[in-house]
């Protein structure tokens, strides 16, 4: 997989963590379990550094998708896009496409073949 795609996937994992930390219900639950969530600033700084390493065209596309959807990149676990549930073309599942980022032709989300 191209390094820029790897960075983009890492960015989404980080964005999910930041969102979870900002979510009052989730963070309260974690705090009640005994976790100290004091490093939100560090996470946000890590996000800035990571985003800088990704080509602008790709990050712009990712951020536009994130404005509309909960996740810009979805795993492919069946023959349908998990975002819009439209069937994916069979070419997606060829060995040549494994571990690459593809695009759902219907909704535009990026798809990651596990």
């Amino acid at each position: 997989m191209k390094e820029e795609f790897r960075l983009l996937i890492a960015l989404q994992d980080l964005d999910i963590m930041i969102k979870e930390t900002k979510d009052q219900s989730t963070s309260e639950e974690l705090k009640n379990l005994g976790f100290k969530l004091t490093g939100l600033k560090e996470l946000q700084e890590a996000r800035v550094k990571l985003a800088r390493k990704i080509p602008p065209v790709l990050i712009n596309r990712y951020e536009k998708l994130m404005e509309h959807y909960t996740m810009a990149i979805l795993p492919v676990t069946s023959d349908k896009c998990l975002g819009c549930f439209v069937r994916l073309p069979s070419v997606f599942f060829s060995a040549a496409h494994s571990h690459r980022l593809l695009t759902c032709e219907n909704c535009g989300r990026m798809l990651y073949l596990l």
Binding site: R6, D13, L14, M17, F35, L37, E42, L43, A46
Partner: peptide
């Protein structure tokens, strides 16, 4: 790599 990065970030949170 993805899992390690995610866990490192989680540890930086606390």
């Amino acid at each position: 790599h993805f899992i390690m990065e995610m866990l490192k970030n989680r540890e930086s949170l606390g």
